[in-house]
Amino acid sequence: MAQTPQSLKEEQRRSANYHPTIWDPSAIKSFSTPYTYELYGTQLEDWKQKARKLLASTKGTVATLKLIDSLKRLGVAYHFQDQIQQALDQLNVVSDDLSTVALHFRLLRDNCYPVTADVFEKFKGGDGKFMDSISGNVEELLSLYEASFMAIPGELILEEVKGFCNQSLKILLGKMDQVERSLEVPLYWRMERIEARNFIDSYAVDDSKSSVLLDLAKLNYNLIQSAYQKELKELAEWWRELNFKEKLSFSRDRLMEIYFWATGLSFEPQYAKSRICSTKYACLATVVDDIYGSLDELESFTKAVTGWDMKAVEELPGYMRAMFSAMSDFTNELAQQTMAWTFCPTSKNSGLYYAEHI
Rank of each mutant, 00 (worst) to 15 (best):
D96V: 02
L98M: 10
L98F: 11
L98R: 01
L98V: 05
L98G: 10
S99F: 11
T100L: 13
T100A: 04
T100W: 06
T100F: 06
T100V: 15
V101I: 15
V101N: 07
L103H: 03
H104Y: 15
H104V: 04
H104Q: 08
F105Q: 05
F105E: 01
F105V: 06
R106K: 13
R106N: 01
R106T: 06
L107M: 09
L107V: 12
L108P: 00
L108M: 14
L108Q: 15
D110L: 12
D110S: 15
D110K: 11
N111C: 06
N111M: 09
C112K: 15
P114I: 01
P114D: 12
P114V: 02
T116P: 00
T116W: 06
T116C: 04
T116S: 15
D118A: 15
D118F: 06
D118C: 02
V119E: 03
V119C: 13
F120V: 03
E121S: 12
E121W: 03
E121F: 09
E121A: 13
E121C: 03
K122V: 05
K122I: 05
K122H: 04
F123K: 06
F123D: 02
F123T: 08
F123H: 06
K124D: 03
K124N: 03
K124H: 01
G126N: 12
G126I: 00
G128N: 09
G128K: 10
G128W: 05
G128V: 08
G128L: 10
G128T: 07
G128Q: 08
K129G: 01
F130V: 04
F130A: 07
F130T: 03
M131Q: 13
M131L: 13
D132T: 11
S133A: 10
S133M: 02
S133C: 05
S133T: 12
I134E: 01
I134T: 03
S135K: 15
S135R: 14
S135M: 11
S135N: 08
S135L: 06
G136P: 00
G136V: 09
N137C: 01
N137K: 14
V138M: 06
V138G: 03
E139C: 04
L141A: 07
L141E: 02
L142N: 04
L142C: 09
L142G: 08
L142P: 02
S143T: 07
L144Y: 07
Y145H: 14
Y145V: 05
